[in-house]
Design a protein around this nucleic acid. Structure first.
Lengths: 340, 340
DNA sequence: ATGAAAGCGCTAACAC
DNA sequence: GTGTTAGCGCTTTCAT
């Protein structure tokens, strides 16, 4: 049980009676080695429990390899899917993945980028929190950066792959108005949020449909469960006449459901509720919630492909937009004439 | 915009007019450097956008640093929490974290361990899928391995930190029997599963309470949503007389809720339902589900501490057991005299 | 306080 | 085919 340090290429070479270059050739698949020698090397390696050091190789080849992923929170369902997608793709490409959570804090995000750069990763995939300046720098620091699931405006040279949130909100809005709703409450992200495409899509769709947008019905919540709940409660109490609520995220949807329940509102008889993010509980809710499914896994997968396979095409063209899907369940119905 | 390769310590040394050793001292904090020199070095470094290479350092110091985490699936809520806990701890210790998902496949798990070993990580935290032999080898391969959230029996030298699942199931079982239930269905993991402590705890508690265990009521489901649903449907249809269901995981709980709804069973009037894993939707369910909260975050955090801070104590004593919490909501009530 | 030099484990020319 | 050699970027004696 002596825990001696790992065998090196030199040990293997000596033990197999060959030069270190030969061992290197055997393991990197480069050059040509006679079958006999290869076997001897492999045997020696196995005996010594040898495993090539990624450090040595990385140092030589300039680039440690691997890819870094930065999300606000790994426990968020969408982020989880995203990460899973990256892992799936990275696996096929034989790369490892360094994951970190920035908690929505730009400073922390910058720190993580710094560390990743120190590791000499081949690329970084980020769901950015919000500081353009930092990312402007990061784009220089790392060979290849791509945004996934979210973008920062004004960061040139960083390609992105996104779920088509605008399209999703648009169809949800059309669905709701089609049902007859005119006073739809919108629960969205705070002004500081990186992208308010959802809110814009909501407003635009309503405008196109000739439904007036009442400012009072568009509310912005800061991130987090509590803020979401407060926003939902505020909206539903202030405007007892809303007939439907469109929640722009699962936390906001959760809040809407809870508040409606607390207010003894029947769904969808008194209020219809729909949300962005088709999380697991949408189906378990009573009634099951109509939602927009965002392809988190695919977003991650594509982002990983982009960052590793097409470093040349970086920044070419607009963002890659992946389609969302409207999943209709039982939480929306025609508006009741008058609530309360 | 010339994308020249990253500056090295040599570049900085030259630019600052000092030796490379001095630059090293400045960045590693070792040795002593005069304030003036330090400033010159720092200035030069900033100008060149220098960032020490973790590869170079790692090679020299034997050990790339960083820690590896292997879970079955990052999108699982418990795994997500676990990973988040590891990230939180690793951050305080300045280590990066390589994450990978094995999908419950021992072979894939072994591959991942192999890659991690190649990266010369400082330690590995794993929620093992099932093959003892692989892990027996892995324990040798890597300096420091710890199991988290789940254990394999009989892998010596690998410490573990776990949620007290047995305790959780015990309190759930006591709670249910206290309510008057005698025919409790148990939805558990398949026989091949790494640990069936939950089932054992259920049986033991019932035995202690003098309630006979009917084999017919203890069902094992293979992993995955579909299998869970099938198991729940089978149980509830076969035994219309069960008055309560204890689901040993959130997927099983989900299945129980869905099946009960499909069968038009009222919860808790017709059946009480409780589960292990206090996931987000437990509170959104109607009625909200009584559940056992497992401290996923803490498990990850402690595991990370263990793997990095106490390599000496490895394997000493039994597993670290973290308490679970019984969260009583509205899904359980006294049994109805007779169902159907 | 600081510089020179010797590697860490590996790959890539280049000889043979 | 296979061995020799020169670094990759860094830390670390050992002089100075």
């Amino acid at each position: 049980m002596t825990d001696r340090r790992p065998a090196t290429i030199k040990d293997v070479a000596a033990s197999a009676g060959v030069g270190i270059a030969t061992v290197s050739r055997v393991f990197s698949g480069t050059g040509s080695v006679s079958a006999a020698t290869r076997d001897r090397v492999l045997a020696a390696a196995r005996a010594l429990d040898y495993r090539p050091s990624a450090l040595g190789r990385g140092l030589k080849t300039r680039g440690g390899g691997g890819i870094g992923v930065i999300v606000p929170d790994v426990t968020d369902p969408f982020c989880g899917e995203l990460v899973a997608g990256v892992l799936a793709c990275a696996r096929t490409l034989g790369e490892h993945v360094i994951v970190d959570a920035a908690g929505g804090d730009p400073a922390r995000e910058a720190q993580i980028v710094e560390r990743l750069a120190g590791q000499r990763v081949a690329g970084i995939i980020a769901m950015p929190a919000g500081d353009e300046a930092d990312w402007r720098g990061a784009a220089r620091v790392c060979s290849s950066v791509v945004f996934a699931g979210r973008v920062l405006p004004e960061v040139p040279g960083v390609p992105s792959v996104l779920a088509d949130d605008a399209g999703g909100v648009r169809s949800l809005t059309e669905y709701l108005t089609g049902l007859g709703h005119r006073r739809i409450g919108f629960l969205g992200a705070a002004p500081g949020s990186p992208s308010r495409v959802r809110e814009r899509a909501f407003r635009d769709t309503l405008a196109e449909l000739g439904v007036p947008v009442e400012e009072d019905l568009v509310v912005a919540a800061r991130p987090g469960r509590d803020a979401a709940y407060a926003a939902a409660a505020g909206l539903l109490q202030r405007r007892a006449d809303v007939t439907a609520v469109l929640a722009a995220g699962h936390l906001l949807g959760e809040a809407a459901v809870l508040v409606a329940r607390g207010l003894d509102l029947r769904v969808p008889a008194d209020v219809s509720i729909a949300m962005v993010d088709d999380v697991a509980w949408a189906e378990l809710c009573d009634p099951p919630l109509t939602a927009i499914a965002r392809p988190g896994h695919d977003v991650g997968y594509r982002a990983c492909e982009l960052v590793l396979r097409e470093p040349a095409r970086r920044g070419r063209g607009g963002p890659v937009l992946l389609p969302t899907e409207l999943v209709v369940r039982g939480s929306c119905g025609p508006p009741r004439a008058q609530r309360r």
